[in-house]
Amino acid sequence: MAESKQGKRMPAERLLDDDVLLEELRKGSPEAVEALFDRFHGKIYGLAMSILKNESDAEEATQDVFLTVFQKAHTFKGNSALYSWIYRICVNACLMRLRGKRRQETVSIEEFMPVFTEDGMHTSPVEDWSKEVERKMLDKELGRVIKKFTDELSEKYRVVFVLSDVEGMSNEETAQILGLTVPAVKSRLHRARLFLREQLSRYLQEGKTA
């Protein structure tokens, strides 16, 4: 239970409701600021890190996000969920930081797309390593490798992948956050998965031949 300025006690669980949280933020309630921080700082930083791939940039972007949320809390109309509004602010803050910076080195996604013969068949037989990977699901090394592969995606694909496959958002939510169409989200997500599938495939193959 938190004590507000007027001496009324504000049950902390009430602040889990987006409308109540925003209303209290607009009133300047310190409990609401704490609740907003506790609920979102980890997600914002994680998302910023996945876009910016640099700790100090992610730190500054996270600060920018909270400042924007305070300044714009009164403009939030509730047409979307609070988290999706905040994620959108985060993506924009990160893209602003990327603008003007030297583009980060990423691997060309085209080199990892499947290759087909002229009549649309696989050029070489595809192996099924799914069971092998499922057995290694909790393997730390595999986790590290997947993280490395996702970091190699260019930011255009990485952001969609993180929001959809890591954060578990629907294609519609991801589209809304990024200001993209749903078909564009589906297409980028599909290419990101094809890239990661191929990277995993080569990694496992190397492991066998090493």
């Binding site: 980890g42 930083y45 730190e59 990977v133 996702t150 578990g168 998965r193």
Partner: peptide, 29 residues
């Protein structure tokens, strides 16, 4: 067979990549 294998590995990729953890915020920060 190749497409069966491609489907299985694509689906597994999708599932296993959900395990990717976002970077954790350092305690000091």
């Amino acid at each position: 067979d190749s497409c069966t294998n491609f489907l299985n590995t694509y689906d597994t990729t999708r599932i296993i990549c959900r395990q990717v953890q976002l970077s954790e915020i350092p305690e000091e920060f």
